[in-house]
Design a binder for these strands. Sequence first.
DNA 1: TGCCAGGCCCTCTTTAGGGCCTT
Length: 209
Amino acid sequence: MSKLTPADTVVVLDFETSGLSPKQGERAIEIGAVLLENGQITGRFQELMNPGFAIPAFIESYTGISNAMLADAPPCAEVMERFYQFVGPHNMVAHNASFDRSFLTAEWAYIGRQAQAEFACSMLLSRRLLQDAPNHKLATLVAHQQIDNQGIFHRALADAEMTAQLWLCLLKQLQQQFKITQPSFKLMQQLSSQSKANIVSFLRRYSQQ
DNA sequence: TGCCAGGCCCTCTTTAGGGCCTT
């Protein structure tokens, strides 16, 4: 899909995993995602998946996902194939996208799939557009932007939904502060590579084009 | 034996180091 698609039509995803690095053999244990179309959530995806080994106690405590819950879950390959069909041609957004992209790439590689679309990162964008936030953890930004939530963190669908709302807040900021009526996905990617100091001048030039 | 992620970003930088974020 072209990067010229509007930034309010994307799949926002979040993985819970057995650890930090797929290169160390860690696997996904839950995927949660929402489909945003024209700024509205029109689809949801959430599934636990069995990684084939016991996850550490820290991960059980951190996510609330137990080994008992995973024992009854379908294998990663089965879930990731369904998720591939859910994503379709859409571009993707995640909070600290390099993390989720690394697991998505690895899990899809196991089943012979390859991402067709591109990623944007709500954390990198927040660092540039929400510079007055105390920090740029998802939970902090949700509070900072007064995003509705149920107090559930570190579960995939809940985090994906909050990331989607944060993403819409970022788009709203571009619309209200810089009069960019329909930010493109490509613009969001370009913003991620601008230095924090250059953001205002970059957006003013962009909005005057 | 000891260690164990990696990309991004800032600065007391660029021949580097360390903090932030994700699980």
